[in-house]
């Protein structure tokens, strides 16, 4: 397996405060990689920096994605290269219908790949198959993006968007926080169905909740802005048994 994502000595700030302090991480193609760590260790900052959130500043280090320098790209260029972030707190877009939004996103990706825009009928077919699989109703597709949905529904919709855009690299940022068992199952199912040799997942989490439904290939433990240990699924049990203090 070749490396899909390589992060070397990454330092990043929010305002003047350094959050990532020399982080190194490699995720291979086809790998499901869990990032676990206590609150405030910089897990969400990592996902924000990979996707190019302008609120964060990278001060040193590099991120290579498929061998290309990700840090030079705008957020939409990264997205169209195949980087997808399922947000911990999905943002509301009042008045923007979900279906309309996804069509625009899908066409942006097709354009980036030099393909023709998808026509309306094809798009509906493509969308309905995925919506049915994840239990997304027609009514939900018509509603504005993330407006008026419960926490669980929002997470389900993030999973649905992931299924729609078929990215090569999916970051799930604390998808399991505040989710009930049913919603966890949907998210877990979404990941399992999409698991394939070319696609990698980075699952950022605090607990093992989601990891009960998706078994990771690799687990990295993060503390104070760095990855301090990487290993197999057995690390999840260690965390559950004795917390993060022993790492």
């Amino acid at each position: 397996m070749t490396a899909l994502l390589e992060i070397k000595d990454l330092h990043a700030n929010v305002g003047n405060k350094e959050i990532l302090k020399g982080l190194n991480l490699t995720i291979k193609a086809g790998e499901v990689h869990a990032i676990m760590g206590p609150n405030g260790c910089g897990k969400s900052t990592l996902s924000a920096v990979i996707t190019g959130n302008p609120a964060y500043t990278v001060t040193a280090g590099e991120i290579l994605f498929k061998g290309e320098d990700l840090l030079k790209m705008t957020p939409d260029e990264r997205a169209n290269k195949g980087v997808f972030l399922a947000f911990q707190h999905p943002i509301e877009l009042p008045g923007v219908g979900l279906a309309q939004f996804l069509k625009a996103a899908l066409n942006a990706k097709r354009k980036a790949n030099g393909e023709e825009p998808i026509d309306a009928v094809q798009f509906m077919k493509y969308m309905n198959v995925r919506a049915t699989a994840l239990g997304i109703s027609n009514e939900m597709l018509k509603r504005p993006v993330n407006v008026g949905f419960s926490g669980g529904e929002k997470k389900r919709l993030e999973t649905f968007q992931m299924a729609m855009l078929e990215p090569d690299f999916c970051i799930l940022d604390e998808m399991d926080s505040g989710l009930d068992v049913d919603a966890l199952k949907v998210v877990g199912q979404g990941v399992s169905v999409m698991r394939e040799p070319k696609r990698s997942f980075m699952i950022i989490t605090h607990h093992d909740d989601l990891l009960q439904y998706v078994t990771p290939d690799q687990v990295s433990i993060m503390r104070d802005g760095q990855i301090i240990k990487t290993g197999g699924p057995e690390l999840v049990e260690q965390v559950e048994a004795s917390g993060y203090d022993n790492f």
């Binding site: 959130n53 939409d76 997205a79 996103a105 990706k109 968007q161």
Partner: peptide
């Protein structure tokens, strides 16, 4: 940022 993360 959210919309751009989806490729727009």
């Amino acid at each position: 940022f959210y919309a751009m993360q989806r490729g727009l």
